[in-house]
Every structure is written in C-alpha cells, then in structure tokens.
Design a protein around this nucleic acid. Structure first.
Lengths: 239, 239
DNA sequence: GCACAAAGTTAGGACATACTAAATTATTTT
DNA sequence: AAAATAATTTAGTATGTCCTAACTTTGTGC
C-alpha cells in the first residue's frame, strides 16, 4: 500500500463554502492529488461554464489553495490538497455509513453524500467512522483518507486494460452513475469479487468475463470504470 | 394531544435554500405555526439586520410562502407552513438520531442539526427516524412533525409560571444554549422528570424545586425555558 | 512560421443574500 | 393631536457564484 502523507499545517481557516470544496475535490481527482488540472476539465466535472472556473480558480489561488498561472491550469497547494482530502474523507465516510448503518443501496449513497459532505462536522464524520468500524474504503471501493491527510494512492488497472486469461480482484468501481451501479451489481461486478478475463473482441468489442460461476460480457466503456488488483491465475501469469 | 393537520398541497417546488428554510423556521416558531411574526423578531432570531429581513420577506411573499403587508409583519401561508414543518421535522429527527444512534450529548445536537437539516433528504430523515424507532420528540422534548405535516401543538406552561406546591412533568427545555443544557442536565432538569415547586421568592427571586430526592433552586429566567405538563399533587391541586 | 482550432480569459451582467445609513410609517407618551 | 420613540422599509453597496459573448493565448498541421 503506497501512502502519501501530508504535513498537517494547521490552517486557521474559516470553513470553506460548498462550491469551493467541490472545486478542490474535482481538482484533486483530476490531478490525482498533485498533478495539474485543466480549466475545461474542471468545468466539465462540475457542470459549469469554463469562464466560471477561470474566475473561481483565481480566487482560490488568492486564498492560497491553488497554484495558478494563466492559461497553464492549476495545481493544489499543500493546504488545498489537505482541504480536498478532508472533503473526500467526509464524502466517503458518509457513503460508507449510509450503506452500512442506514441500509442505503450502493447506487444511492453518492448523491446523498454529495450534499452532506458540506454540512457534516469532523466530529460527526469521525463518529460515523467509529460506529461502522473505521472502514478503509467506501461502498464503491474508493479509499478513505485518514484524519491526518493520508490516503492510499495505489493506482489500479482498469478491467478494460487486462489481458485475456488474467485474473484479478475487483477493488473499485466508479461511483457517480446510479444506473451503472445497479447494472454492475446485477452482474455481481462489485468490489471483492474475483474476476477473470476470458476473451476480448477487437475494435472496442465486448470483453467476456467470469466471476465465480457466472459468465458475462461487457463493453469497454463500462469495463474502464472497474478497477482491478491483478492476481496470479492458474498458470501463474500476471496482468 | 392537539394536532394540527395540513392539506398536503404538493408544490412542484424546487428545493428551498438554507437561508429560506431558516427564515421559515424562525417565522413558524415566532408565530407558533399560524400567528404573525414581526420583522425585528425575525431579525433577532436569525442574527440579521432588520433591513435584510425586509428584503427577504418580500421575496418569500412573492414565492407564495408568506403573506406580507408592509409594516404589518408576516404570516406563513399554508405552503410556507408546510415547508417550515418539513425543516423542523428534519431538524428534530436529526437531533434525536445524533443523540441515540451516534452518542451525541444533548447540548451538541442542535448545532450539528442546524447545518444537516438543509442537506439531508427526506429519505435520509425517514430512515433515521425508522432506525431509532420513530420518536415523537427530540432530545429536548420538542415534538417531531410527521411527514404529512401534523405536529403536536399543545402549549405547556413554563416552570416560571407554576404556583407553589404544584407538581408537573418536565416535557421540554429550550435547545439552543449548550451551556444552559449542561447546567440543566447537572440538576436533573431533563424531560420526563417529575418536578415540584417548593417555594418562590418575590421580585424575580429564586424558585425552589424538588426532583425526586434532589432539592435545588433556580432563577426565573432559567425556569422560563423549562416547560411543564401539570399533574395533580398529593393534595389534588393543579397548576 | 503561419493560420486555424482548441483552450482559456476578460468583460459585463444576473441573482441571492447580506450590510449601513437614511427615510418612512406606526405607536406611545404627554 | 403633536412630539417623541420604535419599528420598518428603501436606497445604495458588497460578496460569492454563476452566466454568455467576445477576445486572447496556446498549440498543431502544413
């Protein structure tokens, strides 16, 4: 497990607004923590006009949350990264809590968490986490940052990239599209399942899989949203 | 138990903003549901300048949530009253849930609920309520409105108004001041306790009480925040 | 290396919410 | 009923977040 650690600079910060937290989250996930994020991509992820993003990133840069050069995209500063991780922790703990303590279906937790993450205090989130046994991942397999800003940054391969014959453990699926999540659950494509790629049709054709006794085939667009931790198969071959 | 019922006019409403919900809640509690609320009182309760309230109530009136005549105060319309009750239900269910399911102290639930009430969906609130057994009151004894907009509107007498010798059951205490709540808890002045007024000093002097074996005395300002359901005492006398 | 496309920014404006200061209306006192 | 006081509103302004339209910069293809 590769973990990134952050110096806990105790910003004397007033609380961030909901839109600001959303920007930071988006920039974090685009840049995978430290990388740059393009204006257009931020805009797309937040469903905003690019012009709006230009304005906002300037303000966030003034507040010291971003490093920003005109026309060059943005990058989180250390304090911006920590703020993003706090929000991400909130979001994922809330998702896990809703699923485990309140019986939410896994395709419904994202939307609810998306609002609650801006209103829940750190104390509430910590109590939720404690109540359900300090989970390390949310219901879709996304790692939950710790209070001090550590997070598992292992990069997994997507199911779309696995070679034929390779087996792996499903570790994570994309969490935003409820319909997709329901479909995946129907197919038993959920974190923790062992999966084997049986065959792949060329030119974007279907990928055939087996999970336990079940056989199925899915398109590459869907497969790209399923992340896999490779494990040796019978022949000792790796992905 | 007197209950007020409301015709569930299914407004095709976009969700209300947090400030709007706060205004409606304030107006509801000032007017006890149907009465008028003065601009100044709304302003005081929300810690805003009166001028800000004038502006807002006009917009709310335009939206059909309030009946408003310049210089005459406001009154909730039926749809405004229902919206206020929805928020109040959210708030109180959340308070009860935090206390019962997550171990929050009763002096901390208000602040957390104050933020969550604007972010929680009806579904979440209903699940919370179901999980803790559909409570009828929050941790401070305030009645929880039902989903269809009914609420117990019984008006109780405050401890400050009880005559000497009278006994009663504590049904509710004011919920906003954490320090006061901690003090009351220390004295066992909590909902459900049987209380008897032993004596009252004149000119705003202390009120002497007994709760079980405990004897104590408190000032009238504090007593005013404790609501009592009168019960016959040994002599059959009533408050 | 120039022209065009893509990406990004600025300009100007809207809306919700808040403020202070000044004006107005309502109420109370004398 | 006039004057004084209290309550409320209007006027003008600020901030945060968003928009569209027009402009500028960057990068690509020849």
């Amino acid at each position: 497990m590769s973990a990134a650690r952050a110096q806990a600079k105790v910003s004397g910060a007033e609380p961030l607004t909901a839109p600001v937290e959303d920007y930071l989250k988006a920039i974090y996930t685009i840049g995978k923590g430290t990388g740059p994020a393009a204006t257009n991509e931020i805009a797309q992820r937040l469903a905003l006009a690019p012009a709006s993003v230009s304005g906002m990133v300037r303000r966030l840069a003034d507040q010291g949350l971003l490093a920003y050069e005109r026309y060059r995209g943005v990058r989180l500063t250390e304090s911006g990264r920590l703020a993003a991780l706090r929000t991400l922790r909130r979001h994922r703990v809330i998702e896990a809590y809703l699923a485990k303590a309140l019986g939410y279906a896994w395709d419904r937790v994202h939307e609810e968490a998306e609002r609650l993450e801006h209103a829940a205090s750190d104390e509430l989130v910590d109590r939720m986490a404690a109540t359900i046994g300090e989970p390390h991942v949310d219901p879709h397999g996304a790692p939950i940052p710790t209070k001090d800003g550590s997070v598992d940054e292992t990069e997994y391969r997507s199911l779309a990239d696995l070679d034929v014959g390779v087996s792996g453990m499903i570790v994570r699926v994309a969490d935003e599209d409820p319909e997709m999540l329901r479909y995946l659950a129907e197919l038993s494509v959920v974190p923790g399942k062992r999966i084997t790629v049986k065959s792949r049709a060329p030119y974007g054709g279907p990928i055939s899989l087996s999970i336990g006794r079940h056989e199925m085939s899915i398109g590459p667009a869907l497969a790209a949203h399923v992340l896999i931790s490779p494990v040796a198969d019978r022949a000792g071959k790796r992905g």
